[in-house]
């Protein structure tokens, strides 16, 4: 078995990372919307081995009632890692980390969703990490935003996110689990690319000013690619959907 300390994080000779990617390369990204029938909107997003399912319910009546706000809808986000998502079993009870991530994701989504259109209601978003391999919060936001659009909830723009980091002295895009745990810095970024607004920015570790600028620019580049993918997957659902819909109907009957 390969020990974590044996891994060469960045191969200066070849200019590639431990998995053969170049610094500016993302892992293969896959997206799907409308994967759940019971939810109003849903999405499945994969960044390499990271796999995340998001489901949206609402706007609907708030229970318990005391959480009701008179002027707007509340957003309730549950970021949760499945017990089988990591190599060692994760306790399914919400951890401190999951509660924090639910909060930062909620704040990012609140920047986009028009909550004032549905006063006294709730919009519930469930983000379930099926398989974790780094960058789960940004993939989670990407999936949640797709699911919200799929549910037809009015919002300013789609949100796309990616984690950039510093590994072996280099700034790299879309860090995975190994790079995250052994690298020098990890910076998740989420944006509304159409409006050019950053809605989530965290930094673990330290970066110099120049490194930060480089990291942000690389993140924006990657986010724009993710944004295009989000749009194409949604467009596909709403236009060229007709044949898939017919097949589905035939299967049911």
């Amino acid at each position: 078995m390969v020990k974590k300390t044996d891994i060469l994080l960045f191969d200066e000779e070849k200019g590639v990372r431990h998995d053969g990617r170049k610094p500016e390369d993302m892992r293969p990204v896959r997206m799907q919307v409308g994967v759940l029938d019971n939810a109003q909107g849903s999405a499945l997003v994969e960044f390499g081995k990271t796999r995340i399912l998001a489901a949206v319910y609402g706007p609907r009546e708030i229970l318990p009632k005391h959480m009701t706000l008179p002027g707007r809808a509340i957003l309730r986000i549950r970021y949760h890692m499945a017990p089988f998502s990591t190599t060692e079993r994760k306790n399914p009870a919400p951890s401190r980390r999951e509660i924090e991530l639910s909060k930062v994701i909620r704040e990012a989504l609140e920047a986009s969703v028009f909550t004032r259109l549905y006063p006294r209601t709730t919009i519930d978003v469930f983000i379930e990490v099926l398989q974790a391999d780094g960058g789960t919060r940004t993939a989670g936001i990407t999936a949640a935003s797709l699911a919200l659009a799929d549910a037809g909830i009015p919002m300013r723009d789609l949100i796309a996110g990616v984690a950039v980091g510093k590994v072996g002295g280099r700034i790299v895009v879309d860090v995975d689990e190994v790079e995250d745990s052994m690298g020098e810095a990890d910076m998740p970024v989420a944006m509304m690319p159409g409006l050019g607004k950053i809605v989530l920015l965290q930094l673990n570790g330290s970066l110099s000013r120049e490194e930060f600028k480089q990291a942000i620019n690389m993140a924006i580049g990657a986010i724009n690619k993710i944004y295009e993918m989000q749009k194409s997957v949604l467009k596909e659902k709403f236009t060229a959907y007709s044949e898939a819909g017919k097949n589905k109907q035939q299967q049911h009957s």
Partner: peptide, 8 residues
């Protein structure tokens, strides 16, 4: 045209 959130 089919448009998505954020489209001009």
């Amino acid at each position: 045209d089919v448009v998505l959130p954020g489209d001009v």
